[in-house]
Design a protein around this nucleic acid. Structure first.
Length: 474
RNA sequence: GCGCCCAUCGUCUAGCGGUCUAGGACGUCGCCCUUUCACGGCGAAAACAGGGGUUCGAGUCCCCUUGGGCGCGCCA
């Protein structure tokens, strides 16, 4: 089986495209086949190198590897033209001299008569006639159109949509070659998929009608039609196709939001595909379990809350060492992450690793993880957030002042030793543990939330911890 | 306008004619655990769009209505 992912580089790799790529990848891996990557850059106006780089970067981050060289569609224009010429030669295509204005009128008329706005095929049989000579004399440049069947229907056997029938009268003679001789998308896709040996096309269901039209091209060339699978688009919270206004961001944005690739893969796969009640699929499980006939036909809405929850579960399930590695790798992409990354040395790494167990339990994303780890990077004197300020009332400061010499007297700076100090203090004074622990937390982290406070004390080290306590007690 | 697709809790979904007083997950709300926040545990509220059929029996099959989506370029 050969699948392919064929994005047009007019923007970043958006989340819907990523899911399409994921499905192609999953199936190819499962079948021991190949997934090819083709960049559909025939729109010279809108295609950019930056977009190509973003797509490739996004796929790499998501771990969606493709086989063989990346194909650039524009580079194959000569071949596309050659196929159009062949179709012209065998009478499967014809030249059309209709002007933009004529086309406009045709569409208006069709609409008025309750028909789909289509080209009427007026140049179908005019090749070599006086009409063509006249058009040429006027200096008109023709487009090449497919001579599509007008009777009967075209049937698509779709792995997701099932059998879908289109009356041929509703499918017009699509343009193969523009008047400037460049190939259109319709022609290019078919030629490329054929030449690349693609056997299974998985793409968004916005292409479903294109499948029928493209089938006509395959048939005209006598080529085998690949299997189709048109998957529903991802929708935003309002049920409309996910677009920029919903924050349909590039996958790089999801990296910056601190999601793990494996969690995102799992979430994306489960969106519109299911196997019973099961929610969690590791990537190997996904490869094994994925199946097109369990892909739903109805579109699903993208839900950040569920993604976050899933991501949190993945983080917690990841070992401290592995999560640290991912964290450090991702840090430069996180908001303000570069500044933090610059401060990471062996000491910081060790502190992070030591804190990871407590940190990851409190974070649903790497951004939250970075936020939680902030106390390791903060410089004295700390700035306190609202919660910490609230905690550091006079009586809290009194506790800190009383505790400071007891900590200072410690010879053994460990979580256990400091905890013992605090417990003894609590027992003596009759204070509640929380009345002491919370001020410590505020003093040491500047927050109302952190990993276990005794772990924090140990990780920070004697000097830094005592300094922060003194700062807060003042 | 025309064509195609879709329709179970707010969201993702299970359900493939009787096991459905409709199950799970996220989210929401309670309670418990607890040094905070989390995590974890327990529990609650929450859905078969409507109407006709078919059938002994329909969330499950058919039709219509309604609602939503996608498509209809010398864009891809």
């Amino acid at each position: 089986m050969i699948t392919r992912f064929a994005p047009s580089p007019t923007g970043y790799l958006h989340i819907g495209g990523a899911r399409t790529a994921l499905f192609n990848w999953l199936l190819a891996r499962q079948q021991g086949g190949k997934m090819l990557l083709r960049i559909e850059d025939t729109d010279r106006e809108r295609s950019t190198d930056a977009a190509i780089a973003a797509i490739i970067d996004g796929m790499q981050w998501l771990g969606l590897t493709w086989d063989g060289d990346t194909i650039y569609q524009f580079a194959r224009a000569g071949r596309h033209r050659e196929v159009a010429e062949a179709m012209l030669a065998k009478g499967a295509a014809y030249k059309c001299y209709a002007s933009a204005q004529e086309l406009e009128e045709m569409r208006d008329l069709a609409r008025k008569e309750g028909r789909p706005p289509r080209y009427d095929g007026r140049w179908r049989e005019l090749g070599g006639t006086q009409a063509e000579a006249d058009a040429l004399a006027e200096g008109r440049k023709p487009v090449v159109r497919l001579k599509a069947p007008r009777e009967g229907e075209t049937v698509i056997q779709d792995k997701v949509q099932g059998e879908v029938r289109f009356p041929n009268k509703d499918l017009d003679d699509l343009i193969l070659l523009r008047s400037d001789g460049t190939p259109t998308y319709m022609l290019a896709v078919v030629v490329d998929d054929h030449d690349m040996g693609v056997t299974q096309i998985i793409r968004g269901d916005d292409h479903l009608t294109n499948a029928a039209r493209q089938t006509h091209i395959y048939q005209a060339m006598g080529w085998e039609v690949p299997a189709f699978a048109h998957i529903p688009l991802i929708h935003g919270p309002d049920g409309a196709k996910l677009s920029k206004r919903h924050g349909a961001l590039g996958v790089d944005a999801y990296r910056a939001m601190g999601y793990l690739p494996e969690a995102l893969r799992n979430y994306l796969a489960r969106l519109g595909w299911s196997q019973g009640d099961r929610e969690f699929f590791s990537t190997p499980d996904l490869i094994e379990a994925f199946s097109l006939d369990q892909v739903h036909r109805s579109p699903a809405r993208f839900d950040y809350a569920k993604l976050e929850n899933m991501n949190g579960q993945y983080m917690r399930a990841t070992s401290d060492e592995a999560l640290l590695a991912i964290f450090l790798e991702t840090l430069p992409y996180l908001p303000n992450g570069e500044a933090l990354a610059a401060q990471v040395d062996e000491t910081k790494k060790a502190q992070l690793l030591r804190s990871m167990a407590g940190l990851k339990e409190r974070a649903k994303t790497l951004v939250e993880l970075a936020d939680g780890a902030n106390f390791l990077f903060a410089q004295r004197p700390l700035s306190y957030d609202a919660k910490a300020t609230e905690i550091l009332k006079p009586e809290a400061k009194a506790h800190l002042a009383a505790l400071a010499p007891r900590f200072a007297a410690l010879t053994d700076w460990t979580a256990a030793a400091t905890e013992e100090v605090v417990r003894a203090y609590v027992a003596e004074t009759g204070a509640k543990l929380g009345q002491v622990a919370q001020p410590l937390r505020a003093a040491l982290t500047g927050r109302g939330t952190s990993p276990g406070i005794f772990d924090v004390i140990e990780v920070l080290g004697r000097e830094e911890a005592l300094g922060r306590i003194a700062d807060a007690a003042a």
